[in-house]
Simulated scan of single mutants.
Amino acid sequence: MEVKEEASNAVLVRRIFVLIIFAVLAVGGFMLSVGMGSVSIPLDEIITVIFGTGTGTHEQILWNIRLPRTIVAAFVGINLALSGAVLQAIMKNPLADPHIIGISSGAGLAGIIVMLVFPGYEYLVTPVAFLGAMAAAVVIYILAWKNGIRPVRIILAGVAVSAFLGAGISALMIFHSDKVHGALMWMVGGLAARSWPHVDIIYPYAVAGIILVMLGARHLNILQLGDEIAKGLGLNVELTRIVMTAIAAMLAASAVSVVGLLGFVGLIVPHAARLIIGSDYRFLLPGAALLGAAVVMFSDTFARTAFAPTELPVGILMAGLGAPFFLFLLRREL
């Protein structure tokens, strides 16, 4: 009995230590993102500006350009990582990701309709994108259902739905070719020119989503035991799936509405966190959130500085990292 308690305590200490490392990575990504660029800003000035006592050109650069962009990057990483972790749990599919299975495409099509057809209603992009994401999730569930849900069917249905919705986005871009440049950048996924209004758009959904997901961690753990055991423990399995899918769709839609179709964050980050911290969602979810923020901030910093003065959209970098990782997982799972 004592041996079991010692082993349990050792696992707990290890997981807390990993969370601290992820937090340090997130803080490091934040400092690197706001400090690096065409003008390098030392750490002491960054701290001075953040605490409201800085002055001069560096303060303008930090406060008006880099800080809001970095905060948006952090929220986007958190939202997509949590969305991917939740989808992988409720679909029992390690390949689930809001981008791959089509949820992001549903949000993207709905959002781009507002942007191109009704440009005067941009404040509706996030709620409309959420409705699009939920509609895509429902369609994927219906197409994948045949005497239960199987991982391969979800992936195939998601790919088909994503391709169909992508065709709709392309058609809209052809009919509204005068606005195609902004739409193209949005489809790739990038953080260029993100400012404080974008922070105002995403943070309420991020805060609400984080709280709701953490409250649902225990239910996700029970789901991992299998539907029959979960029902025996008193969990309403289908209601839990519906509610958690809605939360995952909200997180993905809020990220898509701000930065566009940024893919593979929800696939790579939860897997990396799971390999390091384990499958207990009480620790996996905060770990994925911290690691997601760090990955997107580091990736965006590299994308905008590596090829200066040309800025590479971060979505291109994430696709370059994520596509080989997806193929590796696909071969391992099938």
Rank of each mutant, 00 (worst) to 15 (best):
Y141R: 09
P151C: 07
F164G: 08
V138Q: 09
S105G: 14
P127M: 02
L191G: 00
G182K: 06
A192Y: 12
G120T: 05
V188P: 03
D178N: 14
V188I: 12
W186Y: 04
H99S: 13
A160P: 06
G168A: 08
S195L: 13
R150S: 14
I169N: 08
R194M: 04
A144F: 02
I103F: 11
A193E: 12
F175L: 15
L191R: 02
T126V: 05
G120V: 04
V152A: 13
S177F: 13
L124Y: 01
K146L: 13
K179A: 10
D178R: 12
K179T: 10
V128P: 02
L131D: 06
I101W: 06
V138N: 10
D97L: 08
W145S: 15
G158L: 08
A135M: 09
P94I: 11
A183R: 00
D97E: 15
N147K: 11
I174A: 15
I174V: 11
V161P: 03
I100D: 01
A107W: 00
L109Y: 05
G102Q: 10
H99Y: 14
A160C: 12
S195T: 10
A129D: 00
G106L: 06
V161N: 02
V128R: 01
L143E: 05
S104L: 12
G148R: 10
A129L: 00
I174Y: 10
G120C: 06
T126L: 05
V159H: 05
G132E: 00
F130Y: 04
G120E: 05
A157F: 06
G148N: 07
M187I: 12
I100A: 04
R194T: 02
H181S: 15
V125E: 00
V128C: 03
S104E: 06
M187T: 13
A133M: 05
G168Y: 05
D97S: 08
A160H: 07
A163E: 10
G120K: 01
G108Y: 03
P94F: 10
L124V: 07
A107K: 02
A133P: 03
F130I: 09
Y123G: 09
A167V: 09
V117Y: 04
L124R: 00
E122G: 13
F164W: 11
P127E: 00
G111Q: 01
V117E: 03
G106M: 04
A163L: 12
A129H: 00
I112M: 08
S177L: 15
F118L: 07
P151N: 09
M185Y: 15
A157Y: 04
W186G: 01
N147I: 08
R194L: 04
P94D: 09
L95I: 11
A107F: 03
A163S: 13
M173A: 14
A167P: 13
M115K: 07
V139K: 08
E122I: 11
V128E: 00
Y141G: 09
S104G: 11
I140T: 03
A167D: 09
A144D: 04
D178V: 14
A110L: 02
S177Q: 13
A129N: 01
V125M: 04
A192R: 14
V138I: 12
F118V: 09
A171C: 14
Y141Q: 08
E122D: 12
K146D: 13
A137L: 04
P127F: 01
A193T: 14
L131C: 13
G132I: 01
A129M: 02
V117M: 06
G148E: 06
F164P: 10
